[in-house]
Design a protein around this nucleic acid. Structure first.
Length: 572
RNA sequence: GCGCCCGUAGCUCAGUGGAUAGAGCGUUAGGUUGCGGACCUAAAGGUCGUGAGUUCGAGUCUCGCCGGGCGCGCCA
């Protein structure tokens, strides 16, 4: 069991210091109606400002009508006293009050050592945090209909959904990855008609699909299926479409597995109708008085919840809309016991967010339990030119092709290091160049990509540990007493930050901070390695302690990369 | 027209209302009789699109404007 993150420990110490100030009469309790400022603790950008810093005194200046510096001085004294009390588990060694009213806090080396020892004792627990309560969460993503292979247009959603799932899992939540698809209807009939046309050597219909995958499908149609599909009175397009979409769906599943994404549940839109979920959801809306009929169609009164338009559920010809399936799906998901639903959608779907959340509210669900994460478009570039594509015309780059060119780890890193909401450029050619550099052994070129730089740090440590083992040296059981200063102190400070980084990722539901930290930790290790000789048979005790610290760095690098679904190689 | 997102270094992008705005790449100048030089050190490079406002403090919050993307179906 590793101790609580140091940031949390310091926050708790500040809480105690504030309470002590009130108890001693130095401060009065805040009035009930006054907003209670949250206690913020952060890593200062400037290392001279200590390990952690708090702006609590500045936050309290207004409610207390006192100067921030005065309050900081008061709280700092209480913090130091708290740490000095016998039995105190405060990690605070010293507090310095700075200009506007910051409290700059230096941590005790043995608090760092306790964290590092915890990593060595229980490496699998390292980085597991629980900033929120445990929840059963459904993350639905990709959800492209099986009319063709996944393309680079689906790439960002795939990685973002999986990264989000991994982060939530690290935060102690029970995540189900889910893929929603429609394998019936006009699109699928068009696919079937295209396959049939291809097989007959006829031109593909206007609304049909082009591309090599269609002719591959046509060539793979089993004889008995073809016979059944073309017998008199058979709906050729529908029969072939169902078969083809099944094949395509399997291809999608194996593509996703190739990039390390495993879906726990695949849900078809047709099943939602067949199993009565849509009907029951509509009934529920009707009972709550949120539907009405107009022009022969059935509508959901979405405007009552702030939407700018009401939305059709059943068309005037009685056929359900896509939205009808959506609301059935919401009830079906909640029926499986999920407390929170996350939809990962492209930004072009932002117009549908309101109606789905409104429908959930209208059916009596907590609207806050239905969350939509929108990600922006990726502009794929090759030699400075936009890569344009059209699925219908068959001019597209598949996800498989992209990953074959740039590699899964590099692609994962790329998407993990950028916020979902910003639109980004992806230079396929540049990424491919770096991957090829890696393959032909041009290490200097390859490591221009930060992911390789980080992986190298991990592999380098593995090499050091092997070397040590050959020299008869093993990591010590504890680093206590070795982190006071020097290279050890700097590396330990970087290592120990990890759970805080995970917490931030969980709370922000994003991974940019994780990739930034990975670079920081790798850099800290390389700097340590430069300054400290790790394997030194003449200094077995010091070597053992340094090996332990390096081992903790390796575990942390592996956990950091693991959080992103990126491999941590033993050698490169 | 209305709605949502974006605008930060030459390029690609980070930046929970806090201290001197960061990283990678690129550019420039250096570093190895020791464990993987796939490494390290340093420099140059910014009116944070723009104008106002909010406050002790704004890249971050509010409003206007400019520029870019997306969406406004009884399509999916």
């Amino acid at each position: 069991m590793t101790p609580a993150p140091l940031r949390s420990q310091v926050r708790a110490a500040l809480e105690r210091a504030w309470a002590a100030a009130i108890e001693s009469g130095a401060l009065s309790p805040l009035p009930e109606d006054a907003p209670r400022p949250s206690i913020e603790v952060e890593r200062p950008a400037n290392p001279e400002h200590g390990d952690l810093a708090s702006n609590l005194a500045m936050k309290l200046a207004r409610p207390y009508q006192r100067s921030p510096l005065e309050l900081a001085t008061l709280l700092a004294a209480k913090l130091v006293r708290d740490a000095a009390e016998t039995g105190s588990d405060s990690p605070v060694e010293a507090v310095e009050v700075a200009k506007p009213g910051f409290m700059n806090i230096r941590l005790r080396p043995d608090a760092l050592a306790a964290m590092v020892d915890g990593i060595l004792d229980t490496p699998d627990a390292w980085g597991r945090v629980s900033p929120t309560g445990p929840r059963k969460v459904n993350v639905e993503f990709v959800s492209a209909n099986p009319t063709g292979p996944l393309t680079i247009g689906n790439a960002r959603g795939a990685f973002i959904g999986d990264l989000l799932s991994r982060v939530l899992e690290a935060g102690g939540q029970d995540v189900t990855r889910e893929y929603y698809f429609n394998d019936s209807g006009a699109q699928i009939d068009n696919l079937g008609a295209s396959v049939a046309a291809m097989k007959r050597g006829e031109p593909v219909p206007e609304e049909g699909y082009q591309g090599d995958y269609v002719s591959d499908l046509a060539a793979a149609v089993p004889d008995d299926l073809w016979a059944a599909a073309t017998v008199d009175g058979a709906d050729t397009a529908a029969v072939l479409g169902r078969w083809a979409s099944g094949r395509v769906r399997e291809g999608i599943e194996s593509s996703m597995e190739r990039l390390g994404v495993h879906f726990d549940v695949w849900t078809s839109e047709g099943r939602l109708h067949e199993d009565g979920w849509v009907g029951r959801a509509v009934e529920r809306l009707r009972e709550n008085g949120h539907v009405f009929e107009a022009n022969g169609a059935l509508w959901f009164r979405s405007t009552a919840f702030g939407d700018d338009k009401d939305r059709v559920i059943y068309r005037s010809d009685g056929r359900p809309t896509y939205f009808a399936a959506d609301i059935g799906y919401v009830t079906e998901k909640f029926s499986r016991g999920f407390e929170h639903l996350i939809y990962v959608w492209g930004a072009d779907h932002h117009g549908t967010v309101a109606r789905v959340r409104n429908a959930a509210a209208a059916m009596g669900y907590d609207e806050g339990a239905v969350q939509v994460l929108l990600y922006s478009w990726v502009r794929f570039v090759r030699d400075g030119e936009d890569v344009s594509m059209s699925k219908r015309a068959g001019t597209f780059i598949t996800l498989d092709e992209l990953l074959a060119e740039v590699g899964v780890d590099a692609a994962r890193w790329f998407f993990a290091s950028r916020a979902a909401t910003t639109s980004i450029d992806f230079d396929i050619e540049q990424m491919r160049g770096l991957r090829e550099a890696l393959e032909r052994g041009d290490h200097e070129e390859a490591s221009k990509l930060p992911v390789y730089y980080v992986q190298y740090a991990h592999a380098r440590i593995a090499s050091i540990l092997r070397k040590a083992s050959e020299s008869g040296l093993a990591p010590a059981g504890s680093v206590a007493g070795t982190l006071g200063s020097g290279p050890e102190a700097a590396l330990a400070r970087a290592i120990v930050r990890f759970p805080e980084v995970v917490e931030d990722a969980v709370l922000g539901e994003e991974t940019q901070g994780v990739t930034a930290y990975a670079i920081e930790l790798a850099t800290a290790f390389h700097a340590f390695y430069r300054d400290a000789r790790v394997v030194d048979p003449d200094e077995p005790e010091r070597s053992a302690a340094r090996l332990a610290l390096v081992r903790a760095a390796q575990v942390t690098l592996a956990r950091t990369l693991g959080l992103l679904g990126i491999s941590a190689p033993e050698s490169m």
